[in-house]
């Protein structure tokens, strides 16, 4: 079972503070959507509204076409994987995972079988009799996922579920999460502030800022063709070059007026948008690339960040002839 989620002009205000400002979104059934943004952008508020833990001041939420106004969390076709996992410490893993089934009046034998199958799905086969405190953080995360999926929700909500894990484990869990989502086919709505995590797992990313949706699209789209300066900056490092009257500081460019956004890795010797000779002012070897700051000779006040190939032999003072391969011009 899986269902789409329609968010129609949802606003959330606390007194004079606005957490969400007329947000509208269409999430397809079976899609893996990531709500991405800095803390305080409203992403968790939106997740809570979908889950029924908060009510919007205005607007409505439909899940599978059904209006969710006044429907309590327990009656919604959603379940949540909480940030702190919220496993029941006094229950075994099997009891934890079968809790939702127990609430639905399913017989003990059936729910034990289902719980064991779910534990196997998340790679915790045969550990049903353990208690949560015996597990590592990553394992608790898996149990929380199994517990939320056991009741076969139409939409699974994940509130920064990987936030407490160390980097290596987080990358591994991202891959597993994606694989599990493909297997079960449930709609996943996942909240995070880590843009790499978002790109690693999402079918589509919703970039949020200050209670508004800045951008909504596949990772490639959002990264390479951001619709706003905020998105451009939040998704990764970016050089912003003002263009006025067909002129950038380093010379004429054949683009409309606005802010020319170029990612550091899009600048190279063979770029089509010509920047000209640049002097390296700083360079450091980063393993996968060389990270350098350069200044065009034609525009001594402009500093550009450039990722050069691993093999590039540069040091401070080296002159390079550079151009941009991919770029976007934003007018706002």
């Amino acid at each position: 079972m899986t269902a789409g989620v329609s968010i129609e002009r949802v606003s959330q205000r606390y007194g004079t503070a606005t957490a969400l400002d007329a947000v509208s979104l269409e999430i397809e059934a079976g899609e893996f959507v990531v709500l991405l943004g800095p803390s305080g952008c409203g992403k968790t508020t939106l997740l809570n509204i979908i889950g029924g833990f908060a009510e919007p001041t205005e607007g409505r939420v439909l899940i599978g076409g059904r209006d969710m106004a006044g429907v309590a969390p327990k009656d919604r076709p959603t379940t949540t994987v909480f940030q702190d996992y919220a496993l029941f410490p006094h229950m075994s893993l099997r009891e934890n995972v079968s809790f939702g089934l127990r609430m639905r009046g399913i017989s003990r034998a059936d729910r034990a079988a289902k719980a064991d199958a779910m534990l196997a799905l998340v790679g915790l086969e045969g550990r049903g009799d353990r208690r949560p405190h015996e597990l590592s953080g990553g394992q608790r995360q898996r149990v929380a996922l199994a517990r939320a999926l056991a009741v076969e929700p139409e939409v699974l909500l994940l509130d920064e579920p990987l936030g407490a894990l160390d980097l290596k484990l987080r990358r591994q869990m991202q891959e597993e999460l994606k694989a599990i989502q493909r297997r079960v086919g449930t709609t996943f709505v996942h909240v995070t502030h880590d843009q790499e995590e978002a790109m690693a797992i999402a079918d589509r990313i919703v970039v949020m800022n200050a209670g508004r949706v800045e951008d909504f699209g596949p990772p490639r789209e959002v990264y390479l063709r951001p619709k706003t300066l905020f998105t451009a900056g939040f998704m990764g490092e970016v050089n912003r070059v003002p263009v006025v009257g067909g002129h950038a500081p380093f010379g004429p460019v054949a683009v409309p007026d606005g802010t020319l956004c170029i990612r550091p890795e899009a600048i190279s010797a063979k770029g089509s948008l010509h920047i000209g000779l640049c002097r390296v002012t700083e360079a450091a070897f980063f393993g996968t690339h060389v990270r350098a700051h350069v200044t065009p000779l034609a525009a001594p006040d402009l500093a550009l960040l450039v990722h050069l190939p691993q093999s590039a032999a540069v040091e401070v003072g080296t002159l390079l002839d550079l151009g941009a391969e991919a770029f976007v011009v934003l007018t706002e």
């Binding site: 029924g52 009510e55 106004a69 006044g70 429907v71 309590a72």
Partner: peptide, 8 residues
């Protein structure tokens, strides 16, 4: 009735 009212 709203959820908040039910909770209260």
């Amino acid at each position: 009735m709203s959820l908040a009212a039910k909770d209260r």
